[in-house]
Nucleic acid binder design. Structure first.
Lengths: 241, 241
DNA sequence: CTTAGTTTGTTCGCTACCGAACAGACCGCA
DNA sequence: TGCGGTCTGTTCGGTAGCGAACAAACTAAG
């Protein structure tokens, strides 16, 4: 449905709006991924539950997903944000059939869905694309390493700003759906903690929000508030890809 | 020097005491890694500074290394522990020429040193070994994801116990060199915080220490104190390798 | 054995954040 | 237009851990 809709609007998928897929020409994409499919993913949708078989990789276009660590008591906390700059399913290229993490959709939107076998086959047949995916895996690897430091050493405000910036980078426009409750879970803090910070950001004109809609009104200001982790991760990605 | 010493003691290196290298037969190892070398690494030695060219991979035998995230203000904090179960240099197999993290030796000992080119070549020529390294990369990947949650949500005591257990797994015997100061840096906390916890562990007979020497006296007890992250990471490694 | 350097013990006041709870505001739906 | 559910504002007391500082214990080297 979405597929045919897009067909008429774009040049028969010559644009994927995903940084990794864009490294392939349209004929290469068609050849490597005969079963590729554009799907719509809804907010809160669980794309992969822990230990669920990794049958597909997803290359986000306009959606944003999160890699979530789930603890025994059910507590969830975000480990990584994945959007149009990357892919869900790095473990597939590392020969895993499943993973302990959970993948949840943060911000609804579209993503390209590719069967795991086709992805693995593509790694074999196309060395250039294989290289791109490996470098993305490396970027994600170092993102997680930065996250361990960030979660331990930075304040809610800093991490909140970081999260807003990296989500803003991945969505269209300046407004997206986001509740304090949800952000609190992602950051691993209490909801009132986020509310307090959010109010302060709004009072300072950096963001504006109302009942589940967040708008970034001053990116530059947020960058000043954010911890260095935002820039560190972005720059490392830029160096690699 | 170490090389010739070992030659006389072991069956000409038929035993590597590294879980990953052990997946190769001795002839395979000789063929794949003509330049492999057993080296001694000293405590506190910086094996890789941030952004230093990744010329060698290291497969620890008796040493224990740490992947460290370095922040702009110079603060350091451990992201992962690497010992005889794994390797230093996963980014090499992900086509990186360097990385933002730092690699430091925690506990001195021996490691097998392999030129990056030989490792990359081995990935090409030996699919089974390539698979093992990919799976280890995946294990490390999920270890970092667990670490983001752990650093945010678990107490000093829990993380302290986790660290002691995972180091204990990687060294010979129950005693190793470790100061509170050093452990505090690894965990990203103050030194008195560690001293307090350490004293409590000692009072409860779980460990015993004096002036830079730590002895694990009750592993089982430590496992009870530790957060779930120790077991989660260990089990995930076990499933993969 | 002495001394200098390292390691550990312990204290202080302070702050960020927690867990819980409740009130008010907003929004979609009947 | 009102009602019920969702979202945000705000408060409370409590605690884990911070930063700084200093004292005591140990150990190695001369």
């Amino acid at each position: 449905m979405i597929e045919s809709h897009m067909e008429t609007q774009t040049q028969t998928h010559s644009q994927t709006r995903n940084a990794l897929l864009e490294r392939l020409s349209e004929p290469e994409r068609r050849a490597l991924f005969p079963s590729i499919e554009l799907v719509e993913i809804s907010p809160k949708e669980v794309v992969y539950a822990p230990r669920q078989a990794l049958k597909y990789a997803y290359f986000p276009e306009t959606c944003v997903m999160s890699k979530i660590t789930v603890l025994e008591d059910g507590t969830e906390i975000e480990a990584a944000t994945i959007g149009n700059e990357g892919m869900v399913g790095v473990p597939i290229i590392l020969a895993a059939i499943d993973m302990p993490s959970k993948i949840v959709c943060q911000i609804g939107g579209t993503a390209w869905k590719v069967p795991a076998e086709e992805l693995m086959q593509a790694m074999e047949t196309n060395p250039e694309f294989s290289l791109v995916l490996k470098k993305y895996a490396q970027a994600l690897f170092e993102l997680l390493a930065q996250g361990t430091a960030c979660n331990r050493l930075h304040t809610i405000e800093q991490r909140c700003a970081r999260w807003l910036l990296s989500t803003h980078d991945r969505v269209e426009g300046d407004t997206f759906s986001l509740t304090h409750e949800f952000l609190a879970t992602m950051l691993g803090v209490r909801r009132p903690g986020v509310s307090l910070v959010a109010k302060s950001l709004q009072d300072n004109g950096l963001v504006s929000y109302k009942h589940g809609r967040m708008t970034i009104t001053n990116r530059h200001g947020l960058e000043g508030i954010s911890c260095e982790c935002y820039a560190a991760v972005r720059d490392n990605y830029g160096r690699l890809i």
